[in-house]
Lab assay of single mutants.
Amino acid sequence: MTLTLTVPPGAKVRVRITNENGETTEIEVEPGETVTITLPAGSTVRVEVEVVDPDGRKRTETFTLKP
């Protein structure tokens, strides 16, 4: 399973991925970048995406991906 994120110009994104064992991976994606994350097959993962807009506003979306 893959997750692809494209960050709009001016925004910053931090992604936290937590697996079933509670292990967390965190990455930051710079403005204008596209990143593809390969998620472990057969695992349920929690993905938290934090977006910081150019004006400093933050918003966070959290979702769970199941196999």
Rank of each mutant, 00 (worst) to 15 (best):
V13I: 03
R16E: 05
V51A: 01
G10Q: 10
T25C: 13
N19V: 14
T6S: 09
T25R: 08
G10L: 09
K66T: 15
V15I: 05
T24C: 12
D53F: 15
V35K: 08
T6F: 14
S43Y: 06
E61F: 15
R59S: 03
T36P: 06
K58Y: 01
P67V: 15
R57G: 02
E20W: 07
E30F: 07
D53S: 03
G10Y: 02
M1F: 13
L3M: 04
F63A: 15
T24M: 07
I27E: 09
E33W: 11
E23C: 11
T36V: 11
T38H: 05
G32D: 12
E61V: 15
V7N: 03
D55K: 02
E20S: 05
V13N: 01
S43V: 13
E28G: 13
E30Y: 05
T64H: 04
D53T: 09
T60N: 01
T2N: 07
T36Q: 04
V47Q: 00
D55W: 06
T24Y: 08
I27D: 07
G56A: 00
S43I: 12
L3E: 02
T24P: 08
L65E: 10
E20R: 07
T64R: 00
P40E: 12
G42E: 12
P8D: 11
V52Q: 06
E30P: 06
T6Y: 14
V47W: 00
R46S: 03
R57E: 01
N21W: 08
I17F: 13
V49K: 01
V7T: 03
V35L: 06
L3Y: 06
P9E: 09
P67L: 15
R14E: 14
E20A: 05
M1G: 11
R59V: 06
M1E: 05
T25D: 05
G10N: 06
P9G: 07
T38N: 09
K58R: 06
T4C: 15
I37S: 13
E26V: 04
D53H: 04
G32H: 12
V7G: 01
V45Y: 12
F63K: 15
V35D: 02
G32E: 08
T18F: 13
